[in-house]
Simulated assay, not measured.
Amino acid sequence: MPDQRFTIDKRQARLAFSRAAEQYDQVAVLQREIGQRMLDRLALVRLQPEVILDVGAGTGVATAALASRYRKSRILALDFAFPMLLQTRKRGSWLRKPRCICGDLELLPLADQSVDLIYSNAAIQWSNDLDSTFGEFRRVLRPGGLLMFTTFGPDTLKELRAAWAAVDEGSHVSNFIDMHDVGDALLRAGLADPVMDVDRMTLTYERVTGLMRDLKVLGAHNVNSDRQRGLTGKGRIQAMQSAYEMFRTDQGVLPASYEVVYGHAWAPEAGHRSNAPSVSLDQITHSLGHTGKVS
């Protein structure tokens, strides 16, 4: 039986992101930042993809950037929430409109070996089966094709998790898989030369309610299958807010930590492993001067 701590209620997740679509860009500061860092990383990779698949495209911010960078490529934007794709289509910066596909990353509606580059920013944490997801990525990648993705590690929202733990034993915050387990899944899928890196970022808030509001607007609140159903009482919410105060900094703000996991791997060439060069996040942050803090 799957571990319910890491099992997503896909129906609720899809509804949450569908509701979030129109307001998503207003609060997706972190998602845009790590998406841009992944695009910066792509600049160091020699690749001329004919077909690019943006998995978990959301409102199409990265899709548009990919279309601008790879002007001769065919761009596919995939998301499991149809209203997100409507926002993608409305984006006004298109050189040419992408093909939008409403589908799930665990079962891609694409032909075998039909994609040269898979870009996926902050999406695979919504997979219930990483082996199936990476297996699908491997299936649709052409030999020598590149997978580049970000996701979140278990220290993400650790302050919020600790504050709720001081109140009750319920599941209030989404759980995230360890970077090493993600890397193991890449290897099991037969993807070549995987590289995993981690970065730590912090958003800051005046009050916990600001964080909770952002998570709701993002559609990123807890949709784990073992979450508590029904409304959380006002008393417990107030107790959680009081417990969160232990994390208030000397600057008078409340931190919300994010463990950002970056990964890339290659579809092996026919008959042998890819010899494509590996680029680590350390090289990226050194060359571009990123600080690893968003506030």
Rank of each mutant, 00 (worst) to 15 (best):
R74L: 12
S174A: 13
E50Y: 03
T291L: 11
R71N: 09
E136A: 13
G219S: 12
R71K: 15
K72C: 11
F176L: 13
S68G: 11
K216M: 08
H286D: 14
L39P: 01
E106S: 03
A162Y: 09
S242R: 15
T156A: 04
S295A: 10
V261M: 14
I34R: 05
P154A: 10
G170R: 15
T202K: 02
A166F: 02
V27G: 00
A270I: 15
R41Q: 08
T202I: 03
K216I: 01
N222K: 10
M148D: 05
G153W: 04
Q4K: 02
I177Q: 13
V55D: 01
G252C: 04
Q228P: 00
D54W: 08
F17N: 09
T133E: 02
L47S: 08
V195M: 12
R32Y: 11
E33D: 13
D282A: 14
Q238W: 06
G210F: 06
A81G: 02
C100D: 07
L42W: 10
A20N: 07
A265L: 03
S68A: 15
E169T: 07
R37L: 15
G170S: 15
G263C: 06
A64Y: 01
W94G: 08
I34T: 13
A243M: 04
L66S: 04
L191V: 01
S287C: 10
E169H: 08
L44A: 10
R207K: 14
D250S: 13
A57G: 11
L110P: 12
R99W: 05
R99E: 14
Q4G: 00
V182S: 07
W126S: 08
F152L: 15
H272A: 13
M240G: 03
I237R: 11
E22K: 14
Y70G: 05
H272R: 15
M240V: 02
L186D: 02
V253M: 06
Y244H: 03
R41Y: 12
A67R: 15
R91S: 05
F152A: 02
G153T: 05
M212Y: 00
A43M: 10
D54L: 05
A13E: 06
D104K: 00
R142E: 06
R96N: 00
G92Y: 02
G219A: 06
G271Q: 08
Q36D: 15
L108K: 08
E136G: 11
S18Y: 12
G233M: 04
A256K: 03
L108V: 09
H172V: 05
R71D: 10
Y70C: 05
A65K: 14
E50D: 14
G233F: 02
I52G: 06
K90Y: 01
P2E: 10
F247N: 01
V61Q: 04
H264A: 03
W266I: 01
W266L: 03
H290N: 06
A43G: 06
L288V: 07
G292R: 14
R91M: 07
E269K: 00
F176S: 08
Q36E: 14
I34Q: 10
V51E: 03
T249A: 09
R227L: 00
G103I: 06
S280E: 12
T151S: 14
